[in-house]
């Protein structure tokens, strides 16, 4: 079974040379730390920066330079700044190659719910609805089950949706799954996790096609 860093490491392998990538808050943010160093990638933050770098050293923070999570950041060579409409033009216009975000629920038909739990304080969707409605290549990073142990990979989402039919791939602490027209296709198992354990933790339709390899981290 993987921890959050393990999930981030596995997703980092999906980041290819020349990609512009938007990382959501939480596990997705960690992905930047594990991308291969021999490839060229630029990270986009929807508040208006492309070419985002690591956190600043103490004393070098700039109040005018933050990421979408409102954390202080730095920029790398070749970076640029732009307004919010331009930022979402990059996203809506499919210029961003890969979007990685967290979720509360994903359904076998690619629906995603990650912004609202009825009965609780709703903080808002931020840029998530724009991202999922437009990105061609969306990977969800999340734990396979919630804190109560219920599956987060469902036949149908029970929470209010963020987007419909948009998720292509899900990487969890247990598995890598591809969203197909028939449900979740099991591509890889986390180290030491059996197909049976994945099956038991998946409420949605799980497609098991032959031998399922263990993840190569």
């Amino acid at each position: 079974m993987l921890d959050k860093i393990g999930i981030a490491k596995r997703i980092a392998k999906e980041v290819k040379n020349g990609y512009y990538v938007n990382l959501g808050i939480g596990i997705p943010t960690l992905v930047a730390n594990y991308v291969r160093e021999d490839i060229e990638v630029e990270f986009q933050s929807e508040n208006g920066v492309l070419g985002m770098g690591p956190f600043p050293f103490e004393g070098e923070e700039d109040a005018d330079l933050i990421n979408a999570g409102k954390q202080t950041i730095t920029t790398l060579e070749g970076a640029s700044f732009f307004d919010s409409a331009t930022s979402f033009s990059m996203i809506r216009g499919k210029h961003v190659d890969l979007t990685i975000l967290g979720a509360m629920e994903v359904s076998g038909n690619g629906d995603i719910a990650n912004w609202k739990i009825p009965g609780y304080m709703v903080k808002g969707m931020g840029g998530a609805m724009d991202l999922v409605a437009s990105a061609e290549n969306i990977i969800v990073a999340m734990m396979h089950t919630n804190k109560k142990g219920d599956s987060k990979l469902l036949k149908r989402c029970s929470l209010p949706l963020t987007g419909v039919g948009c998720v292509k791939k899900v990487v969890t602490n247990l598995a890598v799954l591809e969203v197909t027209s028939d449900g979740f296709k099991l591509l890889e198992r986390a180290p030491g996790v059996s197909v049976e354990a994945i099956q038991n933790a998946t409420e949605g339709h799980l497609i098991i096609d032959g031998e399922v390899p263990e993840m190569d981290l």
Partner: peptide, 26 residues
């Protein structure tokens, strides 16, 4: 949605009465 917020501002600036966006469909 954040992109919709930006674009509804920009539409007002640019003289468009409305815009179509995929964000939030469904």
């Amino acid at each position: 949605p954040q992109g919709t917020l930006a674009e509804r501002c920009r539409a007002a600036q640019a003289g468009f009465p409305a815009i179509y966006t995929p964000a939030g469909y469904g």
